[in-house]
Each structure stands twice: as structure tokens, then as C-alpha cells.
Amino acid sequence: MILYTVMPEHLLFPVDAAEYEKKKMVYYDGIPFLVQIVENGEYEIVQNLSTNPYHFLNAKYAPGARFPISAATS
């Protein structure tokens, strides 16, 4: 199916509101991260939002790493 329209895709096919809830921004060790909730009460890092390039060298802060929800602040 090809739709010839100027409307953006997300207006034509809106995603479920629950999808938005899956990802959120939290601070862990004072560093902002985009995370998603995984089973067993942990957050999985999706994106490291820090501007400090050294935060990207630590495997603990790499995408895919997990940390307990209780360790996150705000």
C-alpha cells in the first residue's frame, strides 16, 4: 500500500499510548540515561545522554547494561 500524503506517518498510524510509557529518562550515578523497564525490577540502558565523553568508555553505562530501579534518581 502506498499512501500519497503530506501527513506524517505517526499521525496516520498513531501508536498505543502504552508504548510511550516504556522508555523514560532517569539519572543513575548523576548521569542522565534513557532507559526501558525490563523484568525483575531493573532498568536497561537504551541511550547514554551524558555530554561527558568519558562516561561512554565505562561498560557499566553502555547501552544494554542494567541497573536496579532503586539505584535510579528522579
Binding site: 536497561e44 568519558y54 568508555l57 561498560a59 553502555a62 544494554g64
Partner: peptide, 19 residues
């Protein structure tokens, strides 16, 4: 989780940040 092992840690302070 990552398919990799630890990378050596470096000095946490840097005078240049990257956006």
C-alpha cells in the same frame, strides 16, 4: 548484555564535552 568485556576506565574529568 553487551557481547563485550570491560574497557579500561579513564580519568572522569574532561575539559571538553560532546553533545
Amino acid at each position: 548484555q553487551l557481547g563485550q568485556t570491560n574497557i579500561p576506565q579513564m580519568e572522569p574529568d574532561t575539559n571538553i564535552h560532546c553533545l
